[in-house]
Amino acid sequence: MGKNRYSAELKWSVVKDKLSGQHSNQQIMEKYGIKNVSQIKTWMRWYRNNEMHRFDQPIGKQYSFGHGPVYTSNEEKKNRQIENLKMENEILKKYLEIKEELELKRK
Score class of each variant (00 low, 15 high):
Asn50Arg: 14
Asn74Gln: 12
Lys86Leu: 12
Lys86Gly: 02
Met44Cys: 06
Lys61Asp: 01
Tyr63Ala: 15
Tyr32Leu: 08
Lys35Thr: 03
Val70Cys: 06
His53Ile: 05
Glu75Ala: 07
Trp46Thr: 01
Arg80Leu: 04
Thr72Asp: 07
Asn89Asp: 10
Met87Ser: 03
Met44Val: 10
Leu85Met: 06
Glu75Trp: 11
Ile40Arg: 11
Asn84Ala: 08
Asn84Tyr: 10
Asn89Ser: 06
Lys41Pro: 00
Lys61Thr: 06
Ser64Leu: 13
Ile59Asp: 01
Ile34Arg: 04
Leu92Trp: 13
Thr72Gln: 10
Tyr47Arg: 04
Tyr32Asn: 02
Tyr71Leu: 02
Val37Ile: 12
Glu83Cys: 06
Val70Asn: 07
Glu88Phe: 08
Glu75Ile: 15
Gly66Gln: 11
His53Gln: 05
Gln27His: 05
Asn79Ile: 13
Met29Ile: 02
Gln57Gly: 01
Lys77Met: 12
Trp46Cys: 03
Gln27Arg: 11
Glu51Arg: 10
Met29Tyr: 01
Asn50Gly: 00
Lys61Leu: 09
Tyr63Val: 01
Asp56Arg: 14
Lys86Ser: 12
Tyr95Ile: 14
Ile40Cys: 07
Gly68Cys: 09
Tyr63Asp: 11
Gln27Glu: 14
Lys78Asn: 07
Gln62Ser: 10
Glu83Ser: 07
Asn79Ser: 09
Gln26Arg: 14
Tyr47Asn: 01
Glu88Ser: 12
Lys41Asn: 14
Glu30Cys: 05
Arg48Phe: 05
Met87Phe: 11
Glu88Trp: 04
Lys77Glu: 06
Asn79Glu: 15
Ile91His: 02
Leu85Gly: 00
Lys78Ile: 15
Asn84Lys: 15
Arg80Ser: 11
Val37Gly: 00
Pro58Leu: 09
Gly66Asn: 14
Gln81Ile: 12
Asn89Ala: 10
Ile34Asn: 00
Ser38Trp: 02
Ile28Ala: 02
Leu92Phe: 13
Thr72His: 04
Gln39Lys: 08
Lys31Trp: 04
Tyr32Pro: 02
Ile59Asn: 14
Thr42Phe: 04
Gln62Cys: 07
Met87Trp: 10
Gly66Lys: 10
Tyr71Ala: 08
Tyr47Leu: 06
Met29Val: 02
Thr42Ile: 12
Ile59Met: 05
Asn74Phe: 07
Asn49Ile: 03
Glu76Ile: 12
Lys93Asn: 05
Gln57Phe: 04
Lys93Ser: 07
Phe55Met: 01
Gly68Val: 13
Phe55Ser: 04
Phe55Asn: 01
Thr42Trp: 03
Glu75Arg: 12
Glu90His: 06
Gly33Leu: 10
Tyr95Asn: 01
Glu51Thr: 03
Glu76Ala: 15
Lys77Pro: 00
Lys94Pro: 00
Met29Thr: 02
Gln27Pro: 00
Pro58Ser: 04
Glu75Asn: 09
Leu85Thr: 03
Thr42Pro: 00
His67Gln: 15
Lys86Ala: 06
Glu88Lys: 14
Gln81Glu: 10
Val37Met: 07
Lys41Tyr: 06
Glu83Ala: 14
Lys31Met: 07
Ile34Tyr: 03
Lys35Val: 02
Tyr47Thr: 03
Ser38Gln: 11
